[in-house]
Design a protein around this nucleic acid. Structure first.
Length: 369
DNA sequence: TAGCCGTGGTC
DNA sequence: TGACCAAGGCT
């Protein structure tokens, strides 16, 4: 019966032995990443810069390490300190973030930078950090552990997977958050909590992977209930089936001014899909309904030419854009938020990937030189 | 609370 | 090739 079932944390094999084994592995196999401080420097007492830790953690939310690296380097080169970032313009930050996705992160990033700069520095504990916009349970714990040596449980998707397997948690992760939190708290050490957190994430990324975990190479396989007793680690964590992604349709209109080749862009509202970002005029659509297409739905009259379609997948729907283009001779009344972007500034505009696809469908070499 | 919010890589 | 996924947070 469920009441006689031992709690996951109690099923752990020698919980106090896990952190030492994992840290020993981490000392030999830690990934070298731009936002990390070398272990030799850590040994000298050099602490990670909270600004760089925070910036990297925001960028890494639901985003791969490979995708983040270049953006991180660009940001810390352009804005080496939180004060530099706080002084940046909204447009420059949105443009620098363009292509990385989840654009509310960029707006929250800038708001938080200004808040921190005003306060004279970052909050030095998880509770204070969580009050910053864009910083939730995971990110506040990660920054507190890595930058401020606070022994808090850091639970992200990797850690959920590792903990689910270590304690053989067979209930769906969605309903096991608290159990997982308890398991991770139970094995988080008082010393080197930041390295431990990063070791758990490295383990999840390189050994305890979702599909084909390399259990034979795992430094903590001796303490892994799923590995030793089952169920098969690849079946954990238990995830509920996702809902199907609906398909949506909308019109995209690329207007080129014939006098100088400038492209009409529209700045989108600050909130919602692609909030604060620019792109060609799109007809109104959402995850729930299609937008209008065709010549009649154009922002103004003109010789609109059919340029085919552009496809783009969002998290919860698939979008097909029916792209049209026109060369504009006069000065038509522009829709709200629209402006002419000089052709040589197009590359530097805050254009999300889906917008670049739409423009490229109309002007194939738009981003080549 | 469950839906909203991007993108590119992997198999 | 399409489904799944990767260091979540906000409302």
């Amino acid at each position: 019966m469920a009441s006689f079932q031992r709690q996951p944390a109690e099923r752990l094999v020698k919980p106090s032995a896990i952190a030492p084994a994992l840290l020993d592995w981490y000392d030999r196999h830690a990934r070298t990443l731009p936002w990390r401080v070398a272990s030799s420097d850590l040994a000298k007492g050099i602490r990670p810069d909270p600004y760089r830790v925070w910036l990297s953690e925001i960028m890494l939310q639901q985003t791969t390490v490979a995708a983040v690296k270049g953006y991180f380097e660009k940001f810390v080169t352009t804005w080496p300190t939180v004060g530099d970032l706080a002084a940046a313009t909204d447009d420059s930050v949105m443009a620098a973030w363009a292509g990385l996705g989840y654009y509310s992160r960029a707006r929250n990033l800038l708001a938080a930078a200004r808040q921190v700069n005003e306060a004279g520095g970052f909050p030095a504990d998880a509770a204070g950090l969580k009050a910053l916009p864009g910083v939730g349970d995971y990110t506040s714990a990660a920054i507190a552990a890595i930058a401020f040596d606070e022994p808090v449980a850091v639970v992200d998707g990797n850690v959920e997977r590792v903990a689910s397997r270590l304690a053989a948690i067979e209930v769906p992760v969605k309903t096991a958050k608290k159990q997982i939190q308890t398991v991770v708290s139970c094995i988080t050490p008082a010393v080197r909590p930041g390295d431990f957190a990063q070791a758990m994430m490295d383990l999840g990324a390189t050994i305890c992977t979702p599909k084909r975990p390399a259990c034979a190479l795992c430094p903590v396989n001796a303490y892994c209930v799923a590995f030793k007793e089952g169920p098969d680690p690849t079946t954990l964590p238990v995830k509920l089936p996702r809902k199907a992604r609906p398909a949506r349709l909308a019109g995209a209109y690329v207007a080129e001014r014939s006098s100088d080749g400038a492209i009409m862009l529209v700045r989108r509202p600050a909130s919602g899909l692609l909030g604060g970002m620019a792109g060609p005029y799109l007809t109104d659509f959402s995850s729930r309904h299609d937008g209008a297409t065709g010549e009649d739905a154009a922002p103004f009259a003109g010789d609109w030419i059919d340029c085919g379609t552009a496809e783009h997948g969002f998290t919860h729907f698939q979008l097909t854009l029916e792209v049209m283009s026109a060369r504009i001779d006069g000065e038509p009344a522009l829709p709200d938020g629209a402006f002419w972007c000089p052709r040589d500034e197009l590359i530097h505009a805050a254009l999300p990937t889906v917008m670049k696809k739409a423009i490229a469908a109309a002007i194939p070499n738009a981003f080549h030189a």
